[in-house]
Every structure is written in C-alpha cells, then in structure tokens.
C-alpha cells in the first residue's frame, strides 16, 4: 500500500536520507530501527508531508503520488502521524484533541464508536476527558496523540518513538495497545530504538544507519541478527548477514 523509492533528503548541505527504498503492505506492521541521527524522524516527516524531499523521490500510497502534497492532505488520505514530541494541542482539553482527530471528512461517520474504542483502549483518557492536555503526564500525552490519530480512521498509522521517555511498565501497556490497533487492520509504520518490544509486534523491519537502509528482513530474522545486536546492544565485531541497501 505504501511504496517509497529513492527517498533522499538534504538539510542545506547535510544529507539526512540517501536513496531509501521502503515498502509496506496492507495490514502489515513495519519497524524502522536506527541509532540517534540515523534519519528516522526525517523519514516519517517526509512520509507525512511535513518536509519536502529531494527531487527524484517517489512515494505512492494506494496508487496516488504523495510527493508535493500539502501536509493537511495526508490525514485526508488516511495517513496519520504521531510525531516525535507528540504534537498534541497543549492548551485544549483531552476531548477537544480527540474531536479534532475526526476533523477530516471521512472520519465524521462513526466518530462516536471510534471515540468509544479509543476510551476503551486508553481508559485514562476517558477519566480525564476535560483536563487540559499539557497538564497530563508524558505517558498520558502519548495516549492522547495516538488516540487522536486513531480518530482520523487512518489506513496507515506512523509512530515516531512512542516509547520515548516512558517507564517500562507503560511501554508494555503502550505496545499492548498498538497490538490491539494492529489487529483492527490498521497498517503500522513504527520508528523505534526500543528494539525488543518493537520487533515483537512487527512483521518486518528496516535498519537505518547514516540515512541509508543497511538491512531489511522479517522481524523473526532481525531478532537473531548480530548486526542488530551490535548496533543496539553494543556487541562488538558482529557482521550483518543481511542483504544491504537495494531493497
């Protein structure tokens, strides 16, 4: 459903992404793993239309081209992003944030049921629906951001390091919620540094290093891959058994 070819991105002189190829099938959960500065957030920001990529980049989603579209068109097409730093409306209430999630036209029908589903998924939000969002805890704000994204009835949900800054218990809770979302048929594109939990939920994974894809494989294989262990667990000298780059 999502097909990314030749994605390159420069910030002025700095090359942040270089000829990245990525694909994601309907209903699939894909995780992109990479160290700090690898270009993970840059990639999601391009895929959500928040940054314009270099010329030559092609992104297609369910058959339509995405490059050159305005950022507000992406939720309308069924692509929702939970960005790094969450991007919620801090001065609005929890309920208002969720209601804005259903701002796009196609999400108006069935809004009430979806709200019920979000409240079921995150009961904390139901208890605090009239609280001002910025006064919620970090974990709760992450729930608002994910809940708001779900309200737009996305076909593809992209999450940028949702586990960042959460206590281990909350991370497990969060990934349980993501697992449930996955089971509703939504495709997930997940950027994470938390390798273990994210490979447990993912079907496939990409390794991103210095703006380039250095490996792609099934989640099962990545769990065993010494390159993943080296990159994220600091084990020395391991060499990747994966085919590199051109995928």
């Amino acid at each position: 459903m999502l097909e990314v070819t030749n994605l390159s991105l420069h910030y002025a002189q700095h090359l942040a992404l270089e000829k990245v190829h990525l694909s994601l099938n309907q209903g699939e959960t894909v995780v992109v793993l990479g160290a700090n500065g690898a270009g993970k957030s840059s990639m999601l920001n391009v895929l959500a239309g928040r940054i314009a990529p270099d010329k030559g980049t092609e992104v297609s989603f369910l058959g339509s081209r995405l490059v050159g579209r305005k950022p507000h068109e992406f939720p309308e097409m069924g692509i929702a992003l939970v960005p790094e730093g969450r991007g919620i409306f801090g001065d609005l209430t929890v309920a208002e944030n969720l209601s804005l999630g259903a701002y796009v036209k196609h999400a108006r029908a069935g809004e009430a049921e979806r709200l019920g589903m979000v409240y079921e998924l995150f009961p904390r939000l139901a208890e605090r629906r009239s609280q001002i969002a910025r006064t919620m805890s970090g974990g709760e704000q992450q729930m608002i951001a994910i809940g708001r994204a779900l309200m737009s009835q996305p076909k593809l949900l992209m999450l940028d390091e949702p586990s960042l800054g959460l206590a281990p218990v909350l991370v497990l809770e969060l990934f349980n919620a993501l697992e449930k979302i996955k089971r509703t048929g939504v495709s997930l594109l997940l950027v994470e540094q938390n390798v273990k939990v994210s490979l447990n939920i993912a079907d496939r994974g990409y390794l991103l290093e210095g703006g380039r894809v250095v490996g792609v494989n099934t989640a099962e294989a990545l769990k065993q891959d010494p390159a993943v262990q080296q990159a994220f667990l600091g084990l020395p000298g391991a060499k990747s058994i994966l085919p590199a780059n051109d995928f």
Binding site: G49, E73, P75, G87, I88
Partner: peptide, 16 residues
C-alpha cells in the same frame, strides 16, 4: 483555536 495553540500540529489532523 487549535491553529492558535499550535500551527505546527494543526496539519497533523488535516487542518489547512
């Protein structure tokens, strides 16, 4: 009001 609060975040929910 969402645009007043955060013009950066508004497009994330489809606000032009």
């Amino acid at each position: 009001r969402a645009v007043a609060v955060s013009p950066q975040a508004a497009p994330l929910v489809g606000i032009d």
